[in-house]
């Protein structure tokens, strides 16, 4: 796969593209915070376009950089993880619970195969939902990518070795997700995206005199950490059930001791 980048200059190779993509996302976010959304340029249009373009560009760069470096085992893992995301998201959506739980597979790949693979899983899952179920998922591709990326980084730091720290990691992932997705919810969807419960919470925050972005951020900071902590618990349950030989195919698990050593397995010799 590396052979395709023959004509690419070195500042556009895979590792750099992930960095550039993350940079574009962060600059977009900073720009959206800096520009007063209620200025005379109008609330809706231009700011929303800025958020859409910046986030989409960032997501494209991150995905193209992340996918190019994946080994075959990880490439085979991603479709399954994406399917788990979609199926669980659907079940939870139709059950009417005020949760999302649509990133179990993303977190799982982030923990097992590293930040880049996690980011690719999240973004591509959003693209697939956008292409088959509803285009409303497309603008959130960057949030999903950041969830996978953060999960991978926290796994590298060793937070997924024990359940309490893993739940803490879920909370941190939720904070990232809530903050990154707020501009999309506020500017592109006018705070009307998501379930009725989420919208009611946002309406409450707005009724107390918060601006649109602040209301969306507050809603994200209340709802997302809980949701992602539960997501992490479910992902850990799946990881517990998977055979250790399978997990040790992944260099990220093997070399960085991401998961706790299993007491029931004794190394021979």
């Amino acid at each position: 796969m590396a052979g395709f980048s023959r004509s690419m200059p070195s500042w556009l190779d895979e590792r750099w593209r992930i960095g550039w993509g993350t940079g574009v996302v962060l600059v977009t976010y900073a720009g959206l915070i800096a520009v007063r959304p209620a200025s005379e340029h109008g609330v809706g249009g231009p700011i929303a376009l800025l958020a859409l373009v910046g986030y989409t560009l960032g997501a494209l760069l991150i995905v193209s950089g992340a996918v190019a470096r994946l080994p075959a085992t990880t490439v085979a893992l991603l479709p399954v993880a994406i399917t788990v995301n979609i199926v669980m998201g659907k079940i939870v959506y139709f059950s009417g619970l005020p949760l999302q739980l649509d990133s179990i597979g993303t977190v799982l790949v982030g923990v097992v195969a590293g930040p880049a693979a996690g980011a690719a899983t999240g973004a591509l899952a959003s693209v697939i939902v956008g292409m088959t179920i509803t285009p409303g998922a497309l603008p959130y591709a960057v949030t999903a990518a950041m969830i996978g990326f953060t999960a991978g980084m926290l796994a590298r730091a060793g937070l997924f070795r024990r359940l309490p720290t893993a739940v803490l990691a879920g909370g941190l992932i939720g904070v990232v997700a809530g903050v990154i997705s707020a501009p999309i919810t506020a500017f592109v969807f006018g705070n009307a995206s998501g379930s009725v419960g989420q919208s009611a919470l946002i309406a409450t925050f707005q009724a107390f005199g918060n601006g649109m972005l602040k209301a969306a951020t507050l809603q994200g900071l209340v709802a997302d950490p809980l949701d992602k902590a539960l997501t992490v618990v479910l992902a850990m349950a799946i990881l517990k059930g998977l055979p250790p030989g399978f997990l040790h195919r992944f260099p990220f698990v093997r070399d960085r001791h991401v998961l706790a050593p299993r007491p029931d397995l004794v190394r021979a010799g």
Partner: peptide, 13 residues
């Protein structure tokens, strides 16, 4: 990238 194409197509199948 063929990996990306594979991931999306396989997920749909």
């Amino acid at each position: 990238s063929p990996s990306l194409i594979y991931i999306v197509s396989a997920a749909l199948q």
